[in-house]
Write a protein that binds this DNA or RNA. Sequence first.
DNA 1: CGCCAGCTTGAGCAGCCTCAATGCACGTGG
DNA 2: CCACGTGCATTGAGGCTGCTCAAGCTGGCG
Lengths: 258, 258
Amino acid sequence: MPRDEGRISEPHRCKVGSACVRRHVCRLAAVPGAEVRTVRAAKGQRIGGAGSGSSCFYVVRSGTVAAQAVMADGRRQLIAFHTPGDLVCPLGVGAAGCWAEALSATVLWEVRLHGPAPREGEAARLWAALFEIAHVELARALTHVVMLGRLDGTERVSVFLADMVRRIGRQSGPRAAWRLSLPMSREDMADYLGLNAETVSRILSRLKKAGIVRFQSPSECEVPDLALLERHAPVRPALAGITPAEPPSERYLGEACV
Amino acid sequence: MPRDEGRISEPHRCKVGSACVRRHVCRLAAVPGAEVRTVRAAKGQRIGGAGSGSSCFYVVRSGTVAAQAVMADGRRQLIAFHTPGDLVCPLGVGAAGCWAEALSATVLWEVRLHGPAPREGEAARLWAALFEIAHVELARALTHVVMLGRLDGTERVSVFLADMVRRIGRQSGPRAAWRLSLPMSREDMADYLGLNAETVSRILSRLKKAGIVRFQSPSECEVPDLALLERHAPVRPALAGITPAEPPSERYLGEACV
DNA sequence: CGCCAGCTTGAGCAGCCTCAATGCACGTGG
DNA sequence: CCACGTGCATTGAGGCTGCTCAAGCTGGCG
């Protein structure tokens, strides 16, 4: 694993409230001493962790990153897909056999917190931001648990597709079909959905025959009627970056919130 | 859903560092204005949420609580079992169709944060505690995802049993068999493991025939050789209440930590 | 042009689910 | 005290979903 991983050092500041895609990322980047720089990762390269032992946060700018766990015997489970705008954080992905890696050539912002200790008040903001991030990740993980525990293959693929459309789909007009470029292989999808690649392929073919999706190529597809697709998707994953449900003591901590 | 749910109002203070079972619970209970009281829940009763709309934290003192999601068509997925000493928190379990309920008669501590707003510094401690709780829950959820996505039935049941032994098992001597009272039905186990009750029963019978567990009754069992059981359990859930991996900015925030 | 990785499709099989019958413990009421 | 109902656990038969193995197929790239 190369040490410097071909990083381009291009430090810059995150402009709070404008350039930043996610509110909690802004909070992190706004911490005094936080350093933000652009880094690149090639396909298959691990994000964070491999280097100096310090743990950074990353924001995907382009490309796709997957958090995954790999067991001793090689079985692989994808925990999450991170698409442009998403935060890649080391929370939970610090366990043995668990890391994040780029599924394609990827550009990221690296947010490193190693400046002077924060003043009173800033510490609360920082912890609040970390809490919020962990909370969003937790909500996503719980949806994933329900999906793997109680949905059949077709439902899982439908949930996955609908989630992808909402996250990275493009629509040319208000009633036009959604266009979607799937940035991962059938095997990646399978490892996320607790299936295998052949089964995913078969299910996609079935959805294709049913007219729910159209494929121009294995990775380029169209969803003519998102509502129809979502009728097959009994759970709705929390969209990445959406503000989580009110934290339990938000009201109580009113003035401590950013 | 009754308003007061047969609660016994018995306010008391949590003694930080001694009586408390969990460090982060102590942090919550130590927040100025936090009110701790003992409440009781009957089997099947929901924990929190149903009442005034305020969200509390709970600590299980005896009995068992399960966090669960139920889909529109009735499919049920258990998210976690909470055994004595565990924290029951509203994080993630605030989504639609998602709540915690007592699996048997249960005694809990209710920690309610509604006092005067905390002073500077205390807010940071509180958010840090909330972060830590969310982080532990996240680690547990990710293990659950791997289990449901990539383990077969026998492995899931083995992971579950080993987890239960480590959490609520009793051992009469250093080399004696572990004794375990399972506080949930086969169906509860199945809904946690993404299986059905008959399959769980069959797998337990197989483990019984293999000499890995012995059953005195459906709920009372013995594990003569925990290492043998764990050889069938390819993942190890993070034990409840164990301090999570170093939060990413712990070093940076050194003096803000409790 | 050939190679190779990834995708698709098929055949056969294993694991898990569904449905059903039975057994057991417990509580209730005659 | 016993008969009965109820809820849960167990076990079996049969079927379906998804996995394994294998054979094409396709598109990108050297």
